[in-house]
């Protein structure tokens, strides 16, 4: 069943009763919430994702709740809970949907050690993937959104999941988070992109989410990473790309890994395989169109 097979009223009621589960790649998230922004966000941004009602098993049971107390009256807040436990501080209620997205990422990064999880955007042409690891501000999400609008297959804008057995990457198709100016940049770059409501004044500034392009919601077949590009957006910079040695690429990937320290030797062997199969680059850019073309050229080689 797809989310769009249900009316918004049904989605709202099922979420309130904690009976609806959203599938994203290998994970099924059972979500409980009576916050309207959650049902609105799901119906808008996850319309063509698979959902299940009362599934016998879910990977993660999460809820989003309004924080109680007097505070509720003048400064309503929202809490995220996994297993009835809240791993981080509440946020203003206006950021409820963004919190669901961050919370789901948190669950995967902290509890899915059967994958090596990297903080990186990941897109693919067929079974050849492009990994874009980057700190906040590097422009990886914007670049990811732009590439997806040009026909690259979306794996994730935040989490790259490597299967230690095969060294393949697995897709977790989720709405792409866009911040501040990126929202306008993507609207301009691809007017057809479906972008949800903008939450302003979050800890990360203004945040909006771009829906997964139609037909990619299931994630599709795994891929192998062929290119690893460390993007560095600099206002007005000339586009420049230079190779990075495999060993240095690997050290940088370790810096971006959430659970390398948990996987230990398995993680080392896995990443060793990845950097030997892929080419590493550092790419400075100031113009989205240019870097998108450069990535297309890499893939065409």
């Amino acid at each position: 069943m797809l989310t769009s097979d249900l009316s918004i009223g049904q989605v709202t009621a099922l979420l309130a009763e904690g009976r609806l589960a959203l599938r994203t790649g290998p994970f099924l998230f059972r979500i409980r919430s009576s916050i309207p922004a959650i049902s609105r966000g799901l119906t808008r941004l996850y319309a063509r994702h698979t959902v299940e009602v009362d599934p016998p098993f879910s990977d993660f049971h999460v809820s989003l709740e309004r924080s109680g107390g007097v505070r509720y009256l003048f400064r309503p807040q929202v809490r995220f809970l996994l297993d009835e436990w809240t791993p981080f501080k509440p946020l203003p209620l206006t950021q409820a949907f963004a919190m669901l997205e961050w919370g789901m990422n948190w669950c995967i990064a902290n509890h899915a050690h059967h994958y090596l999880v990297l903080h990186a955007a990941l897109v693919a042409k067929g079974d050849r993937a492009l990994l874009l690891p980057g700190a906040p501000g590097s422009g990886k999400s914007t670049l990811c959104a732009a590439l997806v609008q040009r026909g690259w297959r979306l794996f994730s804008d935040e989490l790259a999941l490597f299967d230690p057995a095969t060294a393949e990457v697995v897709a977790v198709p989720r709405a792409v988070g866009l911040k501040n100016r990126s929202i306008e940049v993507i609207r301009h770059f691809a007017p057809a992109a479906r972008i949800g409501p903008v939450a302003r004044d979050t800890a990360k500034g203004s945040v909006a989410h771009m829906a997964v392009p139609e037909g990619q919601e299931e994630g599709g077949a795994p891929a192998r990473v062929r290119w690893i590009v460390f993007p560095a957006f600099t206002e007005g910079a000339e586009e420049q790309i230079e190779p990075v040695t495999p060993a240095r690429t690997m050290l940088e990937l370790i810096e971006h890994a959430f659970n390398y320290s948990v996987l230990g030797e398995r993680g080392f062997n896995l990443l060793g395989r990845v950097v030997q199969e892929a080419e590493g680059f550092r790419c400075t850019y100031g113009e989205l169109e240019q870097v998108v073309e450069r990535m297309e050229a890499l893939a065409a080689k």
Binding site: T245, P246, A247, R248, M250, L251, I254, S261, G264, E265, F268, N269, G272, V275, Q276
Partner: peptide
Amino acid sequence: LCWLELGDEVLVYHSGSGDTHL
């Protein structure tokens, strides 16, 4: 220790500390 030779650079993973050295 786990070793990985990549050209003229060598990575070594130390399972005790969990550190990877270049």
